[in-house]
Computed example of a mutant assay.
Amino acid sequence: MRSGGAAVGKERTRTRILAATLTCIERWGLAKTSLEDVAREAGLSRATLYRYFPGGREHLVHDTVTWEVGRFFARLEHHVSAAPDLAAKLEEGLIFGHRAIHEHALLQRILRTEPEALLEELSQTVPLIEAAMRAYLLALLRGERLRPGVDPGEAADYLTRMFLSYVGSQGQWDLTDRAQVELLVRSQFVGGLLP
């Protein structure tokens, strides 16, 4: 039982460090946040940070971005869980995801002030996001009646790319308008996949 408690304690400390890193990035920006800042904010020593993130600042920032992206997708998945079918889940996901990205003050600040640094970090995280989303959508597609000849794996890949593209940049569609989102999903996302 002792080792279980130690694991919980380690996870709490790791989460404390990640949350402190987010606070520091909010305060000073992505490029200016240092290990000293994070250690001070977390109330821990630099040595403790290195025990959890042996790769130093780069490792810590990467894991913080990955952690925050993971939290975003966990909220997204929870939000769409009650939707009755694939199209409805995509609609709810686009509305929620677009709003959450738009309202994420830290993300919007970094996009205005340090977009290159964020894009560099996200370039390492995006393959993980795509793989998780593809697996989630593939499971949903296997429960749907698809048009003849539609390969569920290819459809999951297509929907993943479409979703990530639109949730980040809505283009001509107003993702705050439920009727437009429904039309977008029915015509562009699932129109060729479902009978």
Rank of each mutant, 00 (worst) to 15 (best):
A39N: 07
Q172T: 14
G4E: 12
R186A: 08
F73W: 14
Y50G: 01
E92R: 15
T48Y: 01
Y52M: 03
E116H: 13
R40Q: 13
Q188A: 14
L128E: 14
H78C: 08
L141H: 11
T160D: 06
S81T: 13
V69S: 06
E116R: 13
F72D: 05
D63W: 07
A7Y: 10
I25Y: 01
Y52L: 02
E36C: 04
E58S: 09
A82K: 09
G97K: 00
A132C: 10
M133H: 12
I17P: 00
G153T: 12
E144R: 07
L140T: 06
A179C: 04
T23G: 11
G171V: 12
R178Q: 10
E36K: 11
R51C: 01
V190N: 05
T15R: 12
F72G: 06
V185P: 06
R99L: 11
R142W: 00
K89C: 09
E121P: 08
A105V: 14
R12W: 00
T21F: 01
V150H: 06
I25H: 02
A39Y: 06
L106Y: 00
S34F: 10
H62P: 01
I110K: 05
H78F: 11
L194E: 09
I17E: 01
L111V: 09
F163K: 05
F73M: 08
D174S: 12
K10C: 01
L194T: 14
I25E: 01
T64M: 06
G29M: 04
V185C: 05
R112I: 02
E182L: 01
R57K: 15
L35I: 15
L76S: 10
L86N: 13
V126L: 13
E120L: 12
T13W: 04
Y136G: 03
S81R: 13
T113S: 10
A83C: 12
A42R: 03
D37V: 08
W67A: 14
R27I: 04
S169I: 10
V185K: 03
L164D: 09
R12C: 00
A100E: 04
G97Y: 04
L184G: 05
F96H: 12
P127T: 13
E154W: 07
E68A: 15
T113Y: 03
V80C: 10
S187G: 01
A135H: 14
F189P: 03
